[in-house]
Amino acid sequence: MRGESRRVRKANMATPMQRPEGALLRQNEHEELREELEGIAREIRWDIVRMIGLAQSGHPGGSLSCTDILVCLYFHAMNHDPRRPHWPGRDRFVLSKGHAAPALYAVLARSGYFERDELWHLRQLGSILQGHPDRLKTPGVEISTGSLGQGLAAACGMALGLRMDGNPARVYALIGDGESQEGGIWEAAMLAGHHCLGNLTAILDQNGMQIDGSCCEVVGLGDVAAKWRAFGWEVEEVDGHDVVEVCRALDKVASAALPGMVVANTVKGKGVSFMENNVDFHGKAPTPEEMERALKEIEGS
């Protein structure tokens, strides 16, 4: 259950500042990878539901929609070392849609940044796990987020800083589709395009929903892939719950000279039938009974 992942082991052994070569996967590796990552994702979903259920507060919908993406990042794409969270050569991750903190916390705990037991204190007074990510309290959190629309710009800043230092590390940022209504997202998109930030990858968790309803009903984003291309980004569109596809897309955009955008089509609340595509579970915790039902469902999946 808590075995170190392939990529984390690799990160531990890697010479600092050196990115793994040949990131593109060979065909025969796919099924092995799928099995490994889907297994981790199932455990992460279980942790998310339990954390939010115990806290009786939090955002299950957007945490479950981005679970597979975070698993692909932390257990495949990213070069990082949980035992050295400040290692200068590490790839950085910014959770721009900070309300999905439970997904990040579960992934960080499983990677080994802190004890898994901390998860059960989510949102409690004195916990290292705040309602939204706090870089001063949680090992592995690169920057504090929660106010939407700022994380991508922060990631641009990191990418610029790393490039100035000749540091080959990459920066990853996860944004939401509702969040993409913030002007700041597009200001950052323009900056990254202008500076050809090839060391930056953004992932859009396109679950089609925000709080007040579906994004189409509130303020539609139109052809979002075309928009990112128009801003000078290398864009790949994938099924955000197909881990192999997500990994392949992450690897592919990372090899481009332009900033990379992976548009991940996802389902809000993915993995728990009564939360899937249910806007009510954006920011509502399951009742204790609902939690038990959800945990059983994830165990049986």
Partner: peptide, 24 residues
Amino acid sequence: DLAKSTQTEKFKQRFPERFVDCGV
């Protein structure tokens, strides 16, 4: 995008033509 939390949702239901959700 916070009509349910701020409670403007009730006005939106009654007077949809005089309500605008600007998104996030």
